[in-house]
């Protein structure tokens, strides 16, 4: 399955999903609460250390860093103009630290692991009628629907082009939506035929 995940065997990769998410939330909270550039700088350093530990290859790392840097420069310039240099530095450190940390979690955690973790966490909810297995099912169903709708979108755009209406929003969006809804009805019928609505 396509995802932003980068396979690896490092400590960061092997850490449990729950621990990583908790660490991320704690860090995000800290980043928001702290206002001193020094402490924010330390946190930023910790996150970068995480990247080193995870041994994320340079091609992934550089791409993220470049996007982040462009954003940071833009934000810094804007904040400097609006709020002054010190505040601009704080905002930029917050931004870089939080984004880099979140990105690190995503890079080192396969989607399948998150799905099974969520299924595990949802198990106690079973007595309230929640079916933990349906998490994986929802992921699969939606990805399949994305593939189908991408095909529909392509066809609809070609059709709009053929009618010389490639610049019209409605010529694209209306047929696309109508076919999307039709597909939803057919999928609903197919799911019902396969017993998905029956509990």
């Amino acid at each position: 399955m396509i995802s932003a995940h980068e396979p690896g065997t490092s400590v960061v990769h092997r850490a449990p999903v729950g621990a990583k998410l908790l660490a991320l939330f704690a860090l995000a909270a800290a980043v928001f609460v702290l206002g001193s550039p020094l402490w924010l700088g330390v946190l930023c350093g910790v996150v970068l250390l995480g990247y080193a530990l995870a041994r994320i290859p340079a091609r992934r790392w550089l791409r993220t860093a470049r996007a982040l840097l462009i954003l940071a420069v833009f934000v810094f310039a804007l904040q400097w103009w609006l709020l002054g240099a010190q505040a601009a530095l704080v905002v930029c450190l917050r931004l870089v630290t939080a984004l880099a940390a979140a990105n690190l979690v995503t890079l080192t955690t396969p989607v399948d692991d998150v799905v099974s973790a969520v299924e595990r966490w949802a198990r106690p909810l079973r007595r309230f009628g929640v079916r933990p297995e349906s998490v994986g099912l929802l992921v699969g169903l939606t990805m399949q629907a994305v593939a189908t709708l991408s095909g529909i979108a392509r066809e609809v755009r070609e059709a709009a082009k053929a009618r010389g209406a490639e610049r019209s929003v409605t010529a694209f969006a209306v047929p696309f939506l109508v076919r999307t809804l039709r597909h939803a009805d057919e999928l609903g019928e197919a799911l019902a035929a396969r017993g998905a609505g029956d509990r």
């Binding site: 169903l141 399949q144 999928l187 799911l191 035929a193 396969r194």
Partner: peptide, 19 residues
């Protein structure tokens, strides 16, 4: 009944639900 009766639709794109 739905366990007893299978149903194949015209358009398999609508019937195939997983990736």
């Amino acid at each position: 009944v739905r366990k007893h009766v299978g149903f194949v639709f015209t358009n398999p794109d609508s019937q195939i639900v997983m990736p």
